[in-house]
Simulated scan of single mutants.
Amino acid sequence: MELDKIVLNRKERKLLNKINFLTDYGNKRLIKAEIVTSQPEFDLYYFYQLRNYGLVETHHYPEPEESYHYRPDNGIASTQKGLHYNDWHWEHLRQFLYRSVTVPIIISIIANLVILVVKHFYK
């Protein structure tokens, strides 16, 4: 899923920031799942949302004897999209404010100046 289509709510952003903090923003690539699940921000629903968006990924730690029984995911890492989500979010907000606020204000100021000049010269 592209970043343009991803809108995180407050709890998802908080959990993503916590995972990024725990992975030291990508320097420690993989952390134990118990560390993340013990955080007060952790909620399984929001974690699965982040995973479905591709912002975090789960892995298995290697075991010496590979067996064919079910193993839960025991390693969590932020993806590159997850590490840079906040940068993208602020850039997107800046562009939105420029297009939606700044440009209309500048246009209205120019229109008012034109009206004043026209009124002044054609009196």
Rank of each mutant, 00 (worst) to 15 (best):
R13N: 09
K11G: 06
F96W: 13
V117C: 08
G54I: 03
S108M: 09
I35F: 00
K5D: 06
A111V: 07
K18Q: 03
H89N: 12
E63L: 05
K5N: 03
D87F: 07
P104H: 11
A33T: 08
A33R: 07
S67H: 11
F42T: 01
H60E: 03
Y122I: 01
K18P: 00
H84N: 15
V101L: 15
I76P: 10
Y25F: 15
I106A: 13
E34F: 01
R99P: 11
H59R: 03
E2T: 08
V7P: 06
N17F: 10
H69A: 10
L113K: 12
I6H: 12
M1G: 15
N17G: 09
D24T: 13
E2D: 11
Y61I: 03
Q49A: 11
R99C: 14
P72F: 03
K14F: 03
G82Q: 04
L55Y: 01
I105C: 04
I6A: 11
S78Q: 00
N52I: 02
V56D: 02
G75L: 00
Q49K: 12
V56N: 06
I35M: 07
K119W: 05
F42S: 01
F96Q: 15
G82C: 04
H84Y: 15
E41I: 01
L97C: 15
D4Y: 09
E34S: 13
D43Y: 04
V7D: 11
L16I: 06
Q80C: 08
K119G: 02
K11I: 07
F47N: 00
G75N: 03
E12I: 08
V114Q: 06
N86Q: 09
G82W: 07
I110N: 12
E12M: 10
G26F: 12
K18H: 01
V118Q: 02
K18A: 11
I106D: 10
Y61Q: 06
P64E: 09
H120R: 08
K5Q: 05
D24S: 14
M1Y: 05
V56S: 07
K18T: 10
E63I: 06
R10I: 11
I107T: 11
V114G: 10
F47I: 01
V56A: 05
I110L: 13
Y46C: 08
M1S: 14
A33M: 13
K11Y: 08
P62I: 04
F42W: 01
M1N: 11
F42C: 04
D24M: 13
L22P: 12
V7Q: 12
I106H: 11
I6T: 10
Y122L: 01
L113S: 12
P104D: 09
I110Q: 11
